[in-house]
Write a protein that binds this DNA or RNA. Structure first.
Lengths: 246, 246
DNA sequence: AAGTGGTCTAGACCACTAC
DNA sequence: TAGTGGTCTAGACCACTTA
């Protein structure tokens, strides 16, 4: 920035990319905090000595990356996406009418024990170490439609307890992040038909009733598995959203 | 397009969006085919009577949608989605061992009849028009694991016949494209538990046996629905791949 | 050398928001 | 009414591809 017009050619990096990096650097330094407004486009274009168009292209990309949010007539703000909606994107259960509703969770059956063979495989555990397991019973629109059996490596979640799960704020994955520094950034999900079994009572089904079984591995950075869960869905009123068209 | 400068304000739709829709319309009409080059930006901006910058913004979005591909110094091309691997990406059935194997298809039960209520809804048909329906029995690694019941609007697939289906080369979606000019670019899929019923015999199950039911709408440009299919999967040896981690 | 897309400018007018 | 982002223009020069 603050360059001669030739510097762009010399460095080989497009000006708008340099502007983007400069904005990211200012964000990293804490010049503007989450939720705060940035200076106007005119002020920023003057500060970085680029045209409005170039400044806008940089901001466009930051908005596309959901780092900034723009509101016509109000200004450009630092996005707040440490909260629910960001992690909610992994929730792929939808009503047959197409409506995605927010689940109410209730945690039960909390245990700590040795990992079994499948858990060792899915979580890539080398030795037979401890895991936490618990059930998250979920109610959607008042319907008891979903139970998730969640298995976590004890080493990654020190001193996890049922009380901490129940007293958490916001989503489960947000809780992983705020209390254990674990960021879930991707999941692998496979779906098959199963039987209700230990989930039957909550779902008001027979143990041998067919249900949708969604088997998920959640990954942190470097595709390290941090959670293994089996979700059991009664598809009488709900469906699994395999792929949503754009 | 070919508008007075005031028309943009009147319609309320941004010019570049109008340009984008006009390009999509030309694509849908087959003005430029897959792999072909579009006219240069200068020619297009002149044709649509917009500035280069506005034209570029429209093309930018189409490139982001992977409908067009731009090559600096060469031109802008209609993205080639006709290779098998591209259509194969919509095939989300995978062995429990994680291996994705190529299906062998066999077409049966070909009929032409009036659309029923659900077909009308899914295919966005306004009147009660004709549809073709047929079953694609699929064998994976020698296992009869999957039957797909496919429903197509007759108007979009003139003179479709069982013989043409059977004598096609490559994938079904490639056949839609080469023989009917229909490009499937996106799908919406929802999954529930169902019963085998009319698919039972082929899957070697009882009619009341639980199976995975995958309900797909396939879309062409402008999110026009062009195919409605219900896939019936025996999940004894196979699973539905909901989300694959990157 | 000619033609393409990639970047960039220096404005303009508009719709929307806040005061 | 003033300030913001959203859209749009009519050029310019650049890097890259092809011939």
């Amino acid at each position: 920035m603050y360059r001669e017009s030739s510097e762009v050619t010399v460095s080989g990096v497009p000006l708008y990319q340099q502007v983007k990096q400069a904005v990211l650097a200012a964000l990293a330094e804490g010049e503007w905090k989450q939720g705060e407004a940035l200076p106007s486009e005119k002020v920023l274009s003057n500060r970085f000595q680029v045209s409005i168009g170039t400044l806008r292209k940089a901001i466009d990309e930051l908005a596309a990356d959901t780092i900034l949010v723009r509101h016509q007539g109000r200004g450009t703000f630092v996005a707040i996406h440490n909260r629910n909606e960001h992690f909610f994107k992994f929730f792929r259960v939808v009503g047959k009418n197409g409506i995605k509703s927010y689940p109410v969770m209730e945690f039960v059956d909390f245990t700590r024990r040795k990992a079994n063979a499948e858990e060792k495989e899915k979580l890539q555990l080398v030795d037979t170490v401890d895991v936490y397991e618990f059930a998250a019973r979920q109610t959607l629109d008042g319907n008891k439609a979903l139970v998730e059996w969640i298995c976590l490596p004890a080493a990654l979640f020190p001193d996890l307890s049922l009380e901490r799960l129940r007293s958490r704020k916001s989503t489960l994955y947000n809780f992983y992040q705020s209390d254990f520094g674990i960021n879930v950034i991707d999941v692998d999900e496979r779906v098959r038909v199963g039987t209700a079994e230990r989930s039957a009572e909550w779902l008001a089904l027979q143990p041998e009733s067919p249900v949708l079984q969604i088997r998920r591995i959640a990954f942190s950075y470097n595709t390290q598995p941090v959670e293994w869960r089996i979700s059991v869905l009664n598809t009488e009123n709900y469906e699994y959203l395999g792929k949503e068209s754009v």
